[in-house]
Simulated scan of single mutants.
Amino acid sequence: MPGFRQLLLPACVGTLASLAPGILICTGILILAIGLLARELPVEAVATESPRPQTRPALTAWLLGMTTMSVLALRVNFFPALDVAVSALGAALFLSYVMIRWVGSADVIEGERVHLYLLGFVLLVFLHYLPIAAVLPAWPAYQLGETRTFKAQVSFKGGSHRLGACKTRIELDTEGLFSRWSICLPEAQWAPLQKGDAVVVTSASSWLGDYVLHVGRQASSHGDGAGVAGPANPGN
């Protein structure tokens, strides 16, 4: 199926790169992929009278853009409000429908192929939702938000060495739409925390949601000096 072949090639390349154990292996995979695309790898079926394979630059640009946005979604500590989350879901549904119709225009959606397009639609909704809900509103929320602090508890501390994944990540038990927040922290904030610690979270809060600025261990009642540091610059 022409459309699915063009979607699957970048998806497989991105998956291999994200699972690579080291940056050198990952870089090699990406260079190989770029080289294949530069040579116009035949990822789409074309008419037999066509002299050479054809690709869709717009589709390739969309895939690269969504991949970049998805990586950012793993590192941006923004948690949308209910209205923003619902709006993002609606936008993801609409964009996914448009993409399915666009990709499927060269391959009629009928018969036994319908279930493949339904599966592709679900995957596209998942692909679109996180960038729209967690990345696009993050900067406006940071600019418009008012600083607030609240208490939470560390339920997990860990990280990953895979490309794109956060190497210093904690999960917090909080209240609200997303009761468990997965936050990517700079090393200075991450190192002192342990699972089960009570922490104070500083965020830029607005009608869009909460943009987390700082996470620090809650000051003890005995004055042992384990206080909360001031807000750090975002960009983690």
Results as ranks from 00 to 15, higher is better:
M1W: 04
P2Q: 05
G3H: 04
F4Y: 11
L8R: 03
A11M: 12
A11H: 00
V13T: 14
P21I: 12
L24D: 14
I25Y: 05
L30S: 11
L36P: 01
R39S: 02
L41I: 10
P42T: 04
E44S: 14
A47L: 12
A47H: 13
P51Y: 14
T60C: 10
A61Q: 00
V71W: 03
L72R: 03
L72W: 08
F78Y: 09
A81T: 14
D83R: 11
V84N: 09
A88W: 07
A92M: 04
L93I: 07
Y97C: 10
Y97A: 15
Y97N: 00
Y97K: 04
M99G: 05
R101C: 08
R101S: 11
V103P: 04
G104A: 15
A106G: 14
E110V: 13
R113M: 12
Y129Q: 06
P131T: 11
A134F: 01
V135K: 00
L136D: 03
P137M: 07
A138P: 06
G145R: 08
R148D: 12
R148L: 14
Q153P: 05
V154Y: 01
R162L: 15
L163C: 05
T168W: 03
L172D: 04
D173V: 14
L177P: 06
I183D: 02
L185V: 03
W190T: 06
W190V: 04
P192H: 02
Q194S: 15
T202Q: 14
S203N: 10
G209C: 12
D210V: 03
Y211L: 05
H214E: 13
G216T: 06
Q218W: 07
A219N: 04
S220V: 00
V228F: 05
G230E: 13
G230A: 15
N236L: 00
